[in-house]
């Protein structure tokens, strides 16, 4: 565990807490894509199947359970909470998840490290996480007056991915057997998807204006 990895995980955790805070404090999930949240739940579900087969560390197990629990509770609020569900922008959240789920599944079947069910599902989760933010970015573009917590939620998610790249560089330089092209390429693509968002986020911050994506 290096400082970049720890910072990345904590940023990821804080991003989820910011989203939960938004939902609890404002009783609203306006501007949040349920499609992206569904995809993240799928990502965690398939990636953390090794909870049952391999013990890595207490930290690892606890974080996996926290990510699974929080992602499903967010979905619960958005789908079923008496008040919150009415604030979901269903008409605006139109991205077709199938267009990213199917290609990721095909890619995981074709390009993987090992022909086993667990490995292919794990690889699928890596590919899917890379593009799972797309419905959220599309929804943000359509949202007038993006609120602070939503903007910060997406900003923290992008920061978490950027910090993972620093973690990989560090590990590549310090651990002799650390090679993972599938993870690296997916991670770089994922971080790249945020570049546009970051640009407008900093522009809004510098000019002291509300964030909006053109």
């Amino acid at each position: 565990m290096n400082i970049f990895r720890l910072a990345a995980d904590m940023t990821h955790l804080i991003s989820i807490l910011v989203l939960l805070l938004k939902i609890h404090a404002t009783r609203s999930c306006r501007g949040i894509s349920l499609k992206t949240q569904d995809l993240y739940a799928l990502v965690f579900l398939f990636r953390y199947l090794d909870l049952f087969t391999r013990y890595i560390s207490l930290y690892n197990t606890v974080m996996k359970l926290v990510f699974l629990g929080t992602s499903f509770s967010i979905i619960y609020f958005m789908r079923f909470h008496r008040v919150v569900r009415n604030t979901y922008d269903k008409e605006q959240d139109t991205f077709r998840s199938i267009f990213i789920v199917v290609p990721c599944a095909v890619l995981a079947l074709l390009i993987n490290q090992e022909r086993s069910v667990l490995e292919i599902l794990w690889t699928f989760s890596i590919y899917l996480e890379a593009v799972a933010i797309l419905p959220q970015l599309v929804l943000l573009q359509r949202t007038q007056n993006i609120d602070n917590l939503t903007g910060n939620y997406v900003f923290l998610l992008g920061t978490y991915r950027g910090l993972y790249i620093l973690n990989w560089i560090y590990r590549y330089l310090t651990e002799p057997h650390y090679r993972q092209w599938i993870v690296w390429l997916s991670g770089v693509l994922q971080t790249g998807l945020y570049v546009d968002f970051f640009y407008y986020y900093f522009l809004a911050w510098r000019n002291n204006q509300k964030l909006s994506l053109p």
């Binding site: 996996k64 990510f67 490290q113 057997h177 650390y178 993972q180 993870v183």
Partner: peptide, 10 residues
């Protein structure tokens, strides 16, 4: 072992 190391990530 090369493949296992990155599985300790989240």
């Amino acid at each position: 072992a090369g493949e296992e190391v990155s599985k300790d990530e989240l």
